[in-house]
């Protein structure tokens, strides 16, 4: 069991308008916790996550998650996008839309309180603040009871209290056996949550290691520079 990789990416490449945005990515991860994907702006993190979620079909290579080939999206996974996608409906209708027919009313209530939007449940979702939108998008993703959560900077515009709540939720989720792939630029957060780190740079994986190893002894100059807040070229 433990030697079947949960995430297995083989020679993944993605070309968009003739640019190599992802190149020869190969990863085999058996880590059951939070896989943090880090790297500078434009490194290809979001596109990598889209490939893992089956939204973007890679130009070459293959992806297996929990041993299943990713050829399209699956209800086993839920993704929260870097820019939250919300329906032009009320908060509660956004949750109801994502719930399946047998989603219970109290599951919706739980999602509402998780998003801390009980008082705004009838408010138009598109008029929520950036942070409120992110909280709603994450609660909606959890409502699907996925086995894998794919999170693209889900706490980027949250206040400290919201970040804390969300991090707790993610920890609870992994403790219940869920797998999380998480993009973050917040090194503190990556240290708190991450059990392994994938460091991307210009569409390539430069490092893939246990979190403590990555933060204490980054191997590449690029990762060192990134962690020290230097601009890397």
């Amino acid at each position: 069991m433990s030697n079947t990789p949960l995430i297995e990416v083989t020679n993944l490449s993605l070309k968009l308008s003739n640019a190599d945005v992802l190149s020869s990515i190969t990863i085999a991860s058996t880590d059951p916790g939070v896989t943090m994907v880090m790297g500078p702006n434009g490194a290809g993190k979001s596109l990598f996550l889209r490939c893992l979620h089956g939204l973007t079909i890679p130009t070459g290579g293959s992806i297996k998650i929990f041993g299943n080939s990713i050829l399209g999206t699956s209800t086993d996974q839920a993704m929260v996008f870097q820019k939250p996608v919300l329906l032009r409906r009320s908060v509660i209708d956004n949750l109801k839309f994502a719930g399946s027919t047998n989603t219970q009313r109290n599951a919706i209530d739980d999602a509402l309180s998780l998003a801390r939007l009980q008082d705004k449940q009838h408010f138009p979702a598109k008029l929520l603040s950036g942070g409120e939108q992110q909280r709603l998008a994450l609660s909606r993703a959890l409502l699907r009871e996925p086995k894998l959560l794919v999170l693209d900077e889900p706490t980027a515009s949250l206040d400290p209290a919201s970040v804390q709540i969300i991090e707790q939720v993610i920890q609870d989720f992994t403790e219940r056996g869920g797998k999380v792939i998480f993009v973050s630029h917040d090194i503190g957060q990556a240290k708190r949550l991450g059990s392994e780190i994938i460091f991307l740079h210009m569409g390539r994986v430069l490092e893939h290691s246990v979190a403590s190893a990555f933060f204490n002894n980054p191997v590449t100059d690029e990762a060192r520079a990134y962690l020290n807040g230097h601009i890397i070229i």
């Binding site: 939204l55 999206t73 699956s74 209800t75 996974q77 993704m79 329906l87 032009r88 409906r89 839309f97």
Partner: peptide, 23 residues
């Protein structure tokens, strides 16, 4: 706006059309 979300949620084409017309 909705495409990625609908793919992600595995919404059926009929449901998607209905959601587009409604929204």
């Amino acid at each position: 706006e909705y495409k990625d979300l609908f793919l992600s949620l595995k919404i059926s084409p009929q449901q998607a059309v209905f959601a587009y017309l409604w929204d």
